[in-house]
């Protein structure tokens, strides 16, 4: 091999690697594809929620939830408990607002009353689970910086690894996390694993999503089995989705006191 040839080959290799690197999407681009895959006008699901404490004690709840996202990205959510009997028919309604505090109501069937309740901190636990309200928020891309930090296979699914850090000052105030690491499936563009780090950088929670299926009559993918584990305390919440339905044209008026107290 003569020198000019070597130079030419090296140049070719350089061009190829440059082109390959250029094909690597950025963290933001991956999250935009994730967001597009995640976005639905409305979604309803029935699921069981199993709360497991560090001693192995279990409590199971069955619930339905219905969400609808408006053009501004604000979400309306109505959650109804179906079991156990002592919480059955209890309902929770929340309406996200851009310009003020979210509206939230709780329907208490024993009192036959709907009660407006104060907003929770984003770091508060949702109905006693290991999920916080922040964990349930839809991903707000403009409030975070996303950096692609690698590629890994989790349970046989090839995934991008993204580091998400809040950049918006208001979000920085309310978040309970210094950073999150998100494993985004390269096939489904779903979060299949996430690690959460507290304000001092300590690893606190692990989220995992498995049993990924395409929702019938749609192009959307969803996980039917999810866990959120507090890795310090050993408590775990498991969500097993029985059924998803999306884009059924659920109107805004469904997310009202009228339907909240009707009890499903």
């Amino acid at each position: 091999m003569n020198i000019p040839n070597r130079i030419s080959n090296l140049a070719l290799l350089g061009l190829l690697t440059g082109s390959l690197w250029a094909q690597q999407p950025t963290g933001r681009e991956i999250m935009e594809r994730y967001k597009a895959q995640d976005r639905t006008q409305d979604l309803s699901a029935e699921q069981t929620m199993t709360l497991t404490n560090s001693r192995g004690g279990e409590r199971e709840r069955r619930l339905t939830y219905v969400t609808r996202t408006d053009a501004d990205g604000n979400r309306r959510m109505l959650v109804r408990f179906l079991a156990p009997a002592d919480v059955a028919r209890t309902g929770f309604l929340s309406i996200e607002r851009s310009d003020r505090d979210d509206d939230r109501w709780l329907y208490l069937p024993a009192l036959r009353k709907t009660r407006r309740i104060a907003g929770s901190d984003k770091t508060d636990k949702f109905v006693g689970s290991e999920f916080t309200y922040e964990d349930l928020d839809s991903e707000k891309l403009d409030l975070h910086e996303y950096t692609l930090i690698g590629s890994e296979t989790v349970d046989g699914v090839d995934a991008w690894v993204i580091e998400a850090v809040a950049t918006d000052p208001e979000r920085l105030e309310e978040t309970g996390y210094s950073k999150r690491e998100l494993w985004i499936s390269k096939v489904h563009y779903l979060v299949i694993q996430a690690k959460y780090y507290d304000g001092s950088g300590g690893y606190v929670k692990l989220f995992r999503a498995t049993d990924i299926r395409q929702i019938p009559n749609s192009e959307k993918w969803r996980a039917y089995h999810m866990t959120m584990e507090d890795v310090r305390k050993g408590n775990k919440t498991t969500l097993q989705v029985l059924e998803y339905e999306i884009d059924q044209g659920i109107p805004d008026r469904y997310f009202s006191e009228r339907y909240l107290k009707r009890g499903g």
Binding site: D101, R104, R116, I117, A118, G119, S120, D121
Partner: peptide, 10 residues
Amino acid sequence: ATTMGRLGVR
């Protein structure tokens, strides 16, 4: 009934 942050007023 209204709320102001985490404060409920009724």
